[in-house]
Write a protein that binds this DNA or RNA. Structure first.
Lengths: 241, 241
DNA sequence: GTCTTTGTAGCACGAACGTTCGTATTGCAC
DNA sequence: GTGCAATACGAACGTTCGTGCTACAAAGAC
């Protein structure tokens, strides 16, 4: 019980000075999943150390306080979110209508694929901490603002590219798209209903159509191309679960 | 400290047998507010008893377990929700487009007015418990389903009344409306931004317009009549806070 | 070879958690 | 007036929480 992971074994060849970083990363990888299920407050040090088969104090030493652990977990989740949603969306699409669509599409995939075990980390965290002032809440709010700004920018760029009606309120559209994808995640988590994502996509497509110009790329092409390249990822994720 | 509420005083004329019910109701009134802020798990018996200036054991005896307290709190919140949103909406509007609009409008008001101190009780609870199987989660999911069904029914009735396009997917529209009002609540809780409710209303109005028939009552009239009768309630609520 | 730094474990703390138990007080029935 | 059921309290249970402090093993510097 004292040592399930013998100390001398796993860093025989690697330099000792790097072990800390690696352990920290390993902790945070588990922490983000745990927090997405149990919440950032339900993410306890005892539970986390049990999950990782290490001592409470050993784990604790990496962060110094629970709040620091929470903040580190948030940063780790943000990195994963960017890597899984924002970056691929930007790389896979050109500016304009394709990009704003791609952002929403990648988001629903990210939620559907279960990148975090308990659904979108930030949807959960922002609901949990909205009433608790402090640095944790501030950071979460800041990151959600980044996401909303990314959506808004996507809309604005599509307007500049002549794909969307320039008279449309970009902030308003971003609000609506975020509402729809978050609701997809919400319904999926609560009811396990995959159709929720289809509903979100459908609503977003309709809304885009309602403000698309005649010069915009045809709507139908967007969804179809995306579906194909994503099917393998979904299969991979559901196999791992 | 032991008794801020002297036991012999308030039931001098009332029957003693009713005291239990009254205390229970008083507990639950505080519990729903506390749970809307701290979450249903963060709603601790110790904290609740402190808030009510009564003993932990005395409070505990009313429920028998924490889970029973949570379930009772949920029922209390449901009663308030129906009383504050569903019933007034049904009474103040006739079947059809006015009613579905009224349901959404009453919901945003309910969130904006702060009927629960931490925002919509069920938005918070459903996000918190979506990953924790058990009777608490099941009840929350059931109540949210009631609400979604009420929205869907509102849309369907508006179709039957010839106000909305009968080809529209009522479930889809209900999903979208719920997404928008919940996002309004979310943004308001996280950023304190009252404009979020305006955005939600705006999006719902637009969506209704997009599927409204020529025989539907004029859209503009709906919003205006509502605003007037609600202003007093908002004033009353903000004074109490 | 020692010395220092780094990472982990062991142990203990005070507080809060949900829960149980015994007991005191009260109102009502008899 | 006596007995009963309802209601609430205070104390304590065992557990877990976050957080310290000390010790020790391993790697790199000299």
């Amino acid at each position: 019980m004292t040592t399930t992971m013998p100390a001398g074994e796993q860093h025989a060849t690697r330099g000792r000075a790097l072990q800390g970083e690696r352990t920290r990363a390993a902790i945070l990888r588990v922490a983000v999943d745990l927090a997405s299920i149990e919440g950032l407050e339900g993410l306890t040090i005892g539970r986390l150390s049990t999950e990782l088969a290490m001592s409470k104090s050993g784990l604790f030493a990496h962060f110094g306080s629970k709040e620091e652990l929470q903040l580190a977990t948030i940063e780790a989740a943000r990195a994963i979110f960017i890597e899984e949603v924002v970056q691929p969306a930007l790389e896979a699409s050109e500016r304009g209508l394709p990009r704003i669509w791609e952002l929403c599409e990648r988001w629903t995939e990210y939620a559907q694929r279960g990148v975090f075990k308990g659904g979108c980390f930030f949807a959960a965290a922002s609901s949990e901490f909205d009433g608790r002032p402090g640095p944790v809440r501030d950071r979460i709010a800041g990151i959600m603002l980044e996401w909303l700004a990314a959506l808004e920018r996507g809309v604005r760029e599509a307007q500049d590219s002549g794909h969307l009606d320039p008279k449309a309120d970009a902030k308003q559209v971003a609000f609506e798209f975020n509402a729809l994808v978050m609701a997809g995640n919400w319904a999926f988590q609560l009811y396990g209903d995959l159709k929720a994502f289809t509903r979100a996509r459908e609503a977003i497509r309709d809304r885009l159509r309602s403000i698309a110009t005649t010069g915009a790329p045809p709507m139908a092409a967007l969804g179809i191309s995306r579906r194909k390249s994503s099917s393998e990822k979904i299969a991979r994720a559901s196999a791992g679960e």
